[in-house]
Design a protein around this nucleic acid. Structure first.
Lengths: 332, 332
DNA sequence: AGCAGAACTGTAAACGTTTACAGTTCTGAG
DNA sequence: CTCAGAACTGTAAACGTTTACAGTTCTGCT
């Protein structure tokens, strides 16, 4: 049966089946094996409960069957959806997922990234991160395939998944049509990448519609409920706006909170709209009208792209732009 | 500089520094090295940008410096908090985290568990999972350390983190004192482990207070907003209850949704209370009064316990019971 | 200076795979 | 039946580490 110490190895299986380790290895890896041996090997594998040792395999074959997902912050529901998507995309492959959140200091993130060079992962899925030159440099130098999600501007050709930049056009057009041109935009911090992009998107959208005069932007210090509440509280003429466009669903939750505690009805008195279509959108009351970026699908695709790229490094680079989609619910 | 192909190895560093690979290895692993060599080795490591290869190390040293976290469902905010906690607990160690969600069929989970036997992880953090005998058996047989969180009943001595069973006593006592003895309990599905435990907890609590007559339990088909709304909708005399105790924060979100769309004020007309104190509690309006189970801390502790256990397999088993804590906010 | 013992270093053997390569068996056409 | 070539098998050499073990240098005491 089992060896006295530890798990069965190829050698054990080979001995038991009376064949060479090469044959067992080939059998395990799905190559053709003489039918007369097949049965014996299969038997031995089952009797000994053989499972290939990952380290041995990784060392020799130079592939770990692991990929790493680096997300800015797992508390944000949109990253949770992406994580879930990646998991789904990995199903049916034999790749496992490491989760490397950028929770900590730039130094820690840097160390994380650099440690990828120790070959514990065959590829990296990277989400937009803090704008740190050292980190960017480190990422660019990594010698494993990368797939980027969102507007990650590193100087390296990677498969990427972006969202088409017209999300705010869709949103603003909708609010303008339904609630008129008094639209307030509550952005997240401008020093973040989404903050920049979504801010610019709003400006562009109102300019296109020629309603700059009647609209306004305010900035929440963080992408959080409290930040949004604070930003709205400090606003003088809030009640003159008919709709509030929020830079993401969490900020929209903050807006709902602010209005609910001030007895202002949504959407009767003021409409509220989010971006991301996270789980939050259906949990909140009223449920959130929002722009879907299809996070799960993006995660799934990213995983698939990465596995493809690992298996075929020289394939042409894929760049996908997913189309944002309006999801009407009760808040606007 | 670099070798022509791939990354620098111990050999490369050793050759460049004019020492043996053993010395370099020892240096890398923090053992004492003659001061005269130290400088040269350090230099060579930096010049070649040497990073130890994980596979080689794992193969020889029989440790991967990876642990696996198996969670029932990453969409549930409480598991997100635990995940975050585990990440925090791992900070400062050199362990990485694999995330293995039990999203899929029992077969898939079983395969996941079994694949842990291929030694890609040094330990497992296991959260309460579906009650499948095969899976339990597989887990019990795993030859790596396990830390369990919650009421996982496997037949094996493990370090564990449970929540003291008096959470519902605290909650019911609070609601009874503040809103009277007409309390409705909205449980999750009884076939889940939390469903069973929390249901029993509620029954025990109202019995202790002698208010069984005026209270009632209903069951939501799933731990979701929609499930809760449905359960409440189908209830005849809902308006006779002064407070609604929910089996978790997501169900509480459903209750808030139901009441808000029926123009019933919370907490003026009816109080609502959740369990878990997830991020949701502060995102919802009104913010949720809930029972804190300290998910982040439990995750952190679980990670620390696991790393300790890996480093010292024969230490006495640790069983921690965390104390639930009432968090008063606006909903009750 | 001599010497015992401490402190370090280098050699070489693993760890469990995959995979060139050479050797063997099988297949089917002549 | 023979034999060329296809199809498979086994041997042995990696992959990059860690670590016993034996050999070397250092330290401090006599």
């Amino acid at each position: 049966m089992d060896k006295t110490h530890g798990r069965a190895t190829l050698h054990d299986v080979a001995r038991k089946a009376g064949v060479s380790i090469a044959s067992v290895s080939r059998m395990v890896n799905g190559q053709t094996v003489r039918p007369s041996l097949e049965g014996r090997i299969q038997d031995a594998i089952e009797k000994l409960n053989y499972q290939a040792n990952s380290a041995g395999r990784a060392l020799r074959a130079r592939r770990t069957e692991q990929i790493c997902l680096s997300v800015p912050d797992i508390s944000n529901p949109v990253y949770q959806s992406i994580t879930k998507g990646v998991q789904l995309g990995l199903e049916g492959t034999n790749y496992r997922m490491m989760l490397a959140p950028q929770v900590s200091s730039a130094e820690d993130v840097l160390r994380q990234i650099n440690s990828l060079n120790s070959n514990y992962a065959d590829g990296l899925i990277l989400l937009s991160l803090v704008d740190d030159t050292r980190i960017k440099k480190a990422v660019e130098k990594l010698d494993i395939p990368i797939v980027t999600i969102g507007n990650v501007d590193i100087n390296r050709e990677t498969d990427s998944l972006k969202v088409a930049p017209n999300a705010l056009d869709i949103a603003v057009e909708y609010l303008n049509r339904k609630y008129g041109s008094r639209i307030l935009f509550v952005n997240g911090p401008k020093e973040t990448i989404p903050g920049k992009i979504r801010g610019a998107g709003f400006e562009r959208a109102i300019k296109n519609l020629g309603i700059e005069k009647t609209c306004k932007s305010v900035e929440s210090k963080t992408f959080s409920v409290e930040g949004a509440v604070e930003a709205l509280t400090s606003l003088a003429n809030l009640n003159s706006y008919k709709s509030v466009m929020c830079a993401n669903d969490v900020i929209a939750a903050g807006a709902l909170r602010y209005f609910s505690s001030n007895k202002i009805r949504v959407p009767e008195d003021v409409a509220v709209m989010g971006i991301d279509n996270t789980d939050l959108a259906t949990i909140l009351s009223p449920s959130l009208t929002t722009i879907d970026y299809n996070a799960i699908e993006r995660g799934k695709l990213a995983a698939k792209f990465l596995v493809d790229r690992i298996q075929n490094p020289s394939a042409p680079v894929k760049r996908i732009e997913v189309q944002p989609r309006l999801v009407e619910r009760d808040s606007a």
